[in-house]
Structure formats: C-alpha cells, structure tokens
C-alpha cells in the first residue's frame, strides 16, 4: 500500500509537469494580456515598464523556467489583476466550491442509490418507470435552465429559499463551512440540488443496471437458497458487488463537478472557483488560469488515488501492487 502510494505520487509529479507545460503554452497562445491590463493612454515608456513588471518582456521559455522555479517553492505567480498570489486567490474560493460539490454528491447518492436499487429490484413497477423517465430529464435538461426554474419556483414564487450568495458561515471542528449555520444550509440547497441532478440520474441508472445484472447471478440464487431474506441479499450481497462501478463514477464526477461547477456558480452567484476562472479567462489573468488548472489536476490525482484505494477495500480480488498507475 505504501509503495503503491509512493509510486503514485512520483507519477503525479510527471503528470503535473507535463500539464504545467501544456497549460503554460496554451494560455500564452490565447491572447496578450497587455492589451487588457495596460491603459491605452499609457506612453511607450510606461508600457515597457509595466510589461517588464509582469515579466512579459522575456521569451516564453524564460517565463516558463521562471514559473517553474517559483512553482517548486510553492509560488504559482501573482494575479495580474489583484496583485496577490494566484494560489491564495484560489484557496480563498476553494472551500465554497468544495462544500457545494460535497453537498451535491451527497444529494445524488442519497437519492440516486435508493431509486436505482428500487428500479433494479422491481423493473416492471410503475414507480420504477417514473424513476427511469425522471432520470432521462436529469440527463438531458440543461443545467442553466433547471437552475433558473429552481430559482423561479423556490425563491421567487414560493419564497422558501434564498437564490443567491453563500449565506453565513460557521465553524465545525475548526473548518469554516456553510453547514454550520441555518442560513448557510438554506443558501446551499438550491445550487447543490441543481448541481446534483445530472449525477443523481447517472447514479440511478448505473445502480439499476448493476442490480438487474447482479440479480441474475448464481450467487444471488445461492444466497436465497441458504434461506437469506431478500433484504440481506440486496443490501449485503448485491450492494457490495455494484459499489465498484459506482465508486468509479462518483470519483470521476466529483472531480468534474469540483472543477467545472461554473454554470451553477454563475446562476446562483456562488463565490466559488468556477466564477473565478471565468473572470480570469476573460481578463487573461494568466497566473490564475495556470494555477487553477494545476490545482484541478492535483484534485483529480487525489480523487483517483482515493478511488483506487477504495477498490482494494471493496473488492478483495484487487491488489494495489498489481495496479499500474
């Protein structure tokens, strides 16, 4: 296990290095921040001084080397716009997005798993058909439209829940989070719900498919032949077998939601990373874009590592030392 994790970390450094190179070159290609950050009225001397201050006078390779040197000591550059370290800017926004993601994933699982199990266990029942039809909506309705509808119904018409911003935060076990206050949770409900629909549908369908497939397996019939009740067959025997694909998808989706909750954050004015990256891209705030993408890569690496370790916990046939990174 330790060897596995160490080897994984080494591979991660290679991935990060390649990623930083790609991102750096890519961001360099999309436009010149000078046009945005320096006033058109500035004269030639001022312009050159400003360009030199941002480090944009040097050739690309020199800028990259300079960036790498900083990165190795934990400095991913300063935001052109806010003049504070890019990493600090991101870390200010990360908790908001993180809790939104966690809330959305919990909602997806809390509703998707039972719905999928029921639909797989009684595929012919009317409720199952309703669930499956509903899951198609979850897949296909665009997130921005659903978000607007949620606001319209629950915030405007019914007036039950707030529609914008993050609400008050409190502290639980030293962590600052919305979960600690009533207002925080109220503000969290609508954006988390909006973010969860797609994954809810995905988990429902995945669970249903897994249940239906596993119910036909010999081991299910054998478990019943031992005189086990249906409840134990379903929640111990079948459930443990369908968890692997579900954990895989939840892992991938978790990274996805964490990194690209952009639309939902925009609609609900959620002060997370998604809004930050959109602003940074439109302002060509290069250091923030680069730092953001690197943070996203690190999150994906961590999530994948957790998923792989979970595999070996869930399925005794999987041994970590056999797995290639």
């Amino acid at each position: 296990m330790t060897v596995f994790i160490l080897r994984r970390l080494m591979q991660s450094f290679v991935v990060l290095f390649i990623m930083s190179l790609l991102v750096f070159v890519g961001v360099y290609a999309i436009g010149d921040p000078v046009e945005i950050f320096i006033s058109p009225e500035a004269d030639q001397i001022e312009r050159e001084r400003a360009i030199a201050a941002l480090g944009l006078d040097k050739p690309l390779w020199a800028q990259y080397v300079y960036f790498l040197q900083g990165a190795l000591s934990g400095d991913l550059g300063r935001s052109f716009r806010f003049s504070i370290p890019a990493l600090e800017l991101i870390m200010q926004r990360l908790p908001a997005t993180l809790e939104l993601t966690v809330a959305a994933m919990i909602l997806s699982l809390a509703i998707g798993l039972p719905a999928g199990i029921y639909a797989g266990f009684r595929p012919e029942s009317r409720l199952s058909k309703v669930i499956m039809a509903g899951s198609i909506f979850g897949f296909s309705l665009p997130s921005f439209w659903v978000g607007l509808m949620l606001i319209l119904v629950f915030a405007v018409e019914l007036g039950w829940l707030p529609s914008t911003g993050r609400g008050e935060v409190g502290t639980i076990l030293g962590v600052t989070t919305s979960f600690a206050t009533v207002s925080g949770i109220q503000h969290l409900i609508l954006p988390a719900l909006n973010l969860s629909f797609f994954n809810m549908a995905l988990i429902t369908r995945l669970t249903r498919a897994g249940v239906r497939e596993n119910m036909l397996m010999d081991y299910v019939k054998y478990a019943r032949a031992k005189g086990l009740g249906m409840r134990r067959v379903m929640f111990v025997h079948v459930f443990k077998n369908i968890l692997i694909p579900i954990v895989t998808v939840v892992g991938i989706q978790m990274g996805q939601v964490l990194a690209f909750a952009v639309v939902t954050e925009q609609i609900f004015a959620w002060p997370g990373m998604g809004k930050l990256i959109i602003d940074s891209i439109s302002n060509l705030d290069r250091p923030v874009i680069v730092a953001y993408l690197l943070v996203v890569v690190i999150m994906f690496i961590v999530i994948n590592l957790v998923v792989d370790v979970l595999y070996s916990v869930l399925d005794p046939r999987v041994r970590l030392q056999d797995m290639k990174g």
Partner: peptide, 16 residues
C-alpha cells in the same frame, strides 16, 4: 439445502 453446479459462480466474490 442446495448445492449448485458451478462453485466459481455461487459464492459471493466480495464476502469472506
């Protein structure tokens, strides 16, 4: 009690 044909398929792979 019943004993099934294929012992590879009848025991649940993820339970002790």
């Amino acid at each position: 009690a019943m004993i099934f044909q294929d012992p590879m398929m009848t025991l649940n792979p993820v339970l002790r």
